[in-house]
C-alpha cells in the first residue's frame, strides 16, 4: 500500500499561531461532530428529550409561578409579565446546562474513562482539534434546543421585540462560554465525584443570577458579585434582546463569554495533550 499520499498539509505560520492559542483546525475538528452525530443516531431519544426540560420549566415557572408573582421590573425598569421576564433567563440557563452537560460529563467520560480521545489522537487529529470539535458539537446540540425554545417563546407571545432574532446567536455565545469553561474544568477532574464541583458552581448560579427575580433585591456588594457571574452575563444579554431593552452592555457580555470560552478551549488543548500524549 505504499504510495498512498498524505492529506495533511505541513503546518503554516497561521496554523502555528492558532495552535499556540490552543485553537485547533476546524477542518479536522469537524470529524468529532460527525462522530457525535453518528452516535446520536442510535440514541436520538436522549437528544430529543433535552428539548423538553426548558419547556417544562417555562410552563411551570413562567405561567404557574407567574400567576403568583404578576409582573416584575424587566431591563430598563419597565414592568413586564413574569413569564416574559423569566423566559429569556431560562433560555440562558438551558444553554448553560446543555453546554455543561456535554462539556463536563460527556467530555470527562471520553477523556478519562473511555479513553476515546486516546484513540482519536492516534489519527491526524490533535488535542486542539478535539477541543474545538467537541465544543462545536455542544453548540450544535445546544443550538437546536435554543432554536426550539425561542420558537415556543414566540408562539406563547413571550417575545416582545424584533431584537429577539439575535437571541439565537446570543444563546450560542452562552453555550460557547460555558462549554469551553466546563471542558477546561473537566480536564482537572480525576474521578466522577469531582464532577460534583460542577453542580456546586452551576446550581447556585442558576438560582441566584437574576434568573428568577431581578438582582436589585440584593445588597450592593452581593449584587456586583452576582453580576460578575457568567450566567448573569448570559441572562442579562438574552433578557435585553427578547424584551428589546438593548444597550451597549450586551457587547460586554458577548466579550466576557467569548473570552471565557477561548480560555477554556486553550486549557483543554493543553491539558489533553499533556495528559494523553505523555
Amino acid at each position: 500500500m505504499a504510495g498512498s499520499s498524505s492529506t495533511v498539509p505541513a503546518p503554516g505560520g497561521f496554523a502555528r499561531l492558532r495552535a499556540r492559542m490552543g485553537i485547533g483546525s476546524w477542518r479536522r475538528g469537524i470529524h468529532m461532530l460527525e462522530r457525535n452525530a453518528m452516535v446520536y443516531r442510535h440514541t436520538w431519544l436522549i437528544l430529543f428529550s433535552g428539548f423538553f426540560e426548558p419547556v417544562f420549566l417555562l410552563v411551570g415557572m413562567g405561567f404557574g409561578l407567574g400567576g403568583l408573582v404578576g409582573s416584575v421590573n424587566g431591563p430598563g425598569g419597565v414592568a413586564v409579565p413574569y413569564a416574559v421576564f423569566v423566559a429569556p433567563a431560562l433560555l440562558a440557563s438551558s444553554a448553560m446546562n446543555g453546554a455543561i452537560t456535554e462539556g463536563s460529563w460527556n467530555f470527562f467520560w471520553k477523556f478519562r474513562e473511555d479513553r476515546f480521545y486516546e484513540t482519536v489522537l492516534s489519527t491526524p487529529l490533535s488535542p486542539n482539534d478535539i477541543a474545538l470539535g467537541e465544543l462545536g458539537w455542544a453548540l450544535v446540540r445546544g443550538g437546536l434546543y435554543s432554536m426550539g425554545f425561542l420558537v415556543i417563546m414566540a408562539l406563547m407571545g413571550l417575545v416582545t421585540s424584533p431584537w429577539a432574532i439575535l437571541a439565537f446567536p446570543a444563546a450560542l455565545v452562552v453555550g460557547f462560554g460555558f462549554g469551553g469553561a466546563a471542558m477546561g474544568a473537566a480536564t482537572f477532574m480525576r474521578t466522577w465525584q469531582d464532577l460534583d464541583f460542577v453542580s456546586m458552581a452551576t446550581v447556585p448560579m442558576l438560582l441566584l443570577s437574576g434568573t428568577f427575580y431581578p438582582v436589585d433585591v440584593y445588597p450592593d456588594a452581593l449584587r456586583v458579585l452576582i453580576q460578575l457571574t457568567p450566567l448573569y452575563q448570559g441572562v442579562d444579554m438574552l433578557r435585553k434582546l427578547t424584551t428589546g431593552a438593548v444597550d451597549a452592555s450586551i457587547l460586554v457580555h458577548v466579550a466576557y463569554l467569548l473570552i471565557l470560552g477561548l480560555v477554556g478551549l486553550s486549557v483543554v488543548g493543553r491539558r489533553v495533550g499533556r495528559t494523553l500524549l505523555s
Partner: peptide, 11 residues
C-alpha cells in the same frame, strides 16, 4: 423534573 416543577412545589 416535570413533576418537581408541576406538582405544587412552587405554586
Amino acid at each position: 423534573t416535570p413533576l418537581f416543577l408541576l406538582s405544587g412545589t412552587f405554586f
